[in-house]
Nucleic acid binder design. Structure first.
Lengths: 203, 203
DNA sequence: CCTTGCCTAGGCAGATTTACCCATCCTTCC
DNA sequence: GGAAGGATGGGTAAATCTGCCTAGGCAAGG
């Protein structure tokens, strides 16, 4: 587990808490980026850089759920650990339903926070693995030409009619041409049969 | 939407609340089964009969999370709406993470409860649809003989080697025999090609 | 202009699949 | 014992797939 970047985005309006947490977390090897307001955080967040978000629920101007929603809108799906001074049950329920990793009430024990942070990074890493597989598959399919991709689509969407004759009829071309494309497709995707192609596309 | 059974399992140790909620919910057309303790509820629950669970978190002897865990152990996965008098944030977080539909604090508005109950039944119905599809597929595969099922398994697990010759080599039989079984398989499953078989199995 | 890449399409040979027929050998069930 | 179903294997013929060759038309880019 290389644990590439261990960045923690800390968002809290209380300067004392920011500095205290920043110190504590940096001592444990994390890179901490602290923000005093939701606006600043949202403005400077780079969606490409992963990290665990430590988010104060009771921020002035924009509460935690709104921040969570904004991030979701922008397609950012980083683990969020809420920290709250006076948030109640309904807020915590909402936050967890919306996908937050946890919802901690102040004061909380450091050990709990650290454990949750580790869980957050573990989650990030698991997602990264999933995506690596997805990207590898996309890279494969990206090698196909437009026509080849269309034939793959036809076959995957309607596996009941996969013979060259049937596909050719749908495209209005000669079966011979479909044969040709299909050979290219199997070659480019590194599969040996239509069955494997379907498995790859569905997998 | 036929809404087959609209049973609500109500578990609360307070007899007044039980009778009040039971009356109110029955008036709205629900069938309510009320239990005064977690033990009684767990003892008489029929896993086959779906329903939405209204569960008091602060039951004497066994708290809500334990009940939730027991149900999960038994493979019961019904929507649970927690109701609590003095449950706090950590409890609600735990409950939602464990899959509860919601966590309501007393006193709550009837409208909210009713809305959540409806959401619970909607969830049940969606799951039921999913399972119907799953069962239909299982019924199809159940028609296969042992040998046929084994061949399906080999093909699905290793779509790179699907020719009769290759499958026959793995089974130590003649390719001719595999041809024969394959024809039966395609016929029984109502598919026209190996590609469709894979799509069906992966679907 | 020339090259490169893509879509199109044909020929041909060998391998494979598919759909018919058939039989033998089991085990299970009546 | 006989019937039924399942696993095994074969024959044959038509259809299809696969690989390897060729080749024209067309568009983009050097």
């Amino acid at each position: 587990m290389p644990n590439l970047s261990l960045t923690i985005y800390l968002v809290d309006d209380d300067a004392d808490i920011r500095s205290a947490l920043t110190r504590g977390l940096e001592l444990r090897g994390y890179a901490v980026e602290a923000y005093g307001s939701a606006a600043k955080f949202l403005a400077s967040l780079d969606p490409q850089r992963p990290g665990v978000i430590l988010l104060d629920y009771g921020l002035p101007g924009m509460n935690g759920l709104e921040v969570q929603a904004r991030l979701a809108e922008r397609g950012v799906n980083l683990p969020i650990i809420f920290i709250t001074g006076h948030g109640g049950v309904p807020e915590s329920v909402q936050a967890i339903k919306a996908g937050a990793l946890d919802f901690l009430e102040k004061p909380f024990r450091q050990a709990v926070l650290l454990e949750r942070i580790e869980a957050g990074f573990a989650l990030l890493q698991a997602r990264e693995s999933d995506r690596a597989a997805g990207r590898a598959r996309e890279a494969l399919f990206a090698k196909l030409t437009a026509r080849e991709a269309e034939i793959v689509r036809l076959i995957v969407e309607n596996p009941a009619e996969v013979s060259s004759k049937e596909v050719a009829a749908r495209l209005g071309v000669s079966p011979r041409t479909v044969d040709h494309h299909r050979a290219r497709i199997l070659e480019k995707l590194g599969v040996r049969s239509l069955a494997e192609l379907i498995a790859l596309a569905k997998g």
